[in-house]
Design a binder for these strands. Sequence first.
DNA 1: TTTAATGTTCATGA
DNA 2: TTCATGAACATTAA
Length: 282
Amino acid sequence: MPELPEVESARVGLDRVARNKQIQAIEVYWPNLISTNLSIDEWQKTLIDQTIHQVSRRGKYLVFELDTHLLVSHLRMEGKYFYFLKEDIPQEKAKHTHVIFKFTDGSQLHYHDVRKFGRFELTSYKDQAAFFNSKKLGPEPTEEAFDLTEFSKALQKKSRAIKTVLLSQEQVVGLGNIYVDEVLFDSGIYPERPANSLTEKEIALLRTNIIQTIERATGLGGSTIRTYKNTLGEAGRYQDYLQVYGKQGTPCPNCGTTIEKIKVHGRGTHYCPVCQPREGNR
DNA sequence: TTTAATGTTCATGA
DNA sequence: TTCATGAACATTAA
């Protein structure tokens, strides 16, 4: 379910239900989800008895802030969390629930992931900065953090497709395959344009659209494209506002031209051939 | 049967 | 170094 608006929506729900809960036990049904140098046994021992003080987020990474460690969770394509009060815990876990956190108050947090692409990592407060540095994450897509000059300088050095650069999370975090197509459409930029071919004007517009789109989608709880639900079981509502993602064969909302679908960087890519010309709008 | 699906990371070769 | 491509992870549904 994972682009920044969906992850942020999950974070809000998790922070509400899991804050101040103490971990009593953890059940792991698919060990490959746990990315650690420790054995699964040691990993569990490290986490048990710790309290979740806060659930925060860096890019698309969820961060459970514990007593001594930070449990970092990436949902990748299909990861989801479901929270159950003691009296609501299902008799049998769902087929795709692979990790269960049992809290001392009897409630449980279930990690559910159909494709098992999600990952749990562990770091300490001391190693936190180095941990996220190793991921090479760019700034958050906010007015304050996302600096236009830096963004512009970085794009000038990249000859790869602008869509690829935006998906890399290195210049700015949070965009995935849906929002990147939306933002490029809003900005009138063809997804395969080399990043270093964008004009200053286009870069400034792109930055503004990234910030605005992520903000609007986050405010609406993200997009429910397939089966996404947040931790509280709520669907997102931004899918009603999508302009090009999944709209191939339908008219462009701006000019009526048929939206096309191509592959860029191995991902389905939707665009309007008139509003987003290959050679740019000049 | 084949393909594609809201993501990241690794290997290979140019 | 940089970049492109493909594979891997794994399951479901059209």
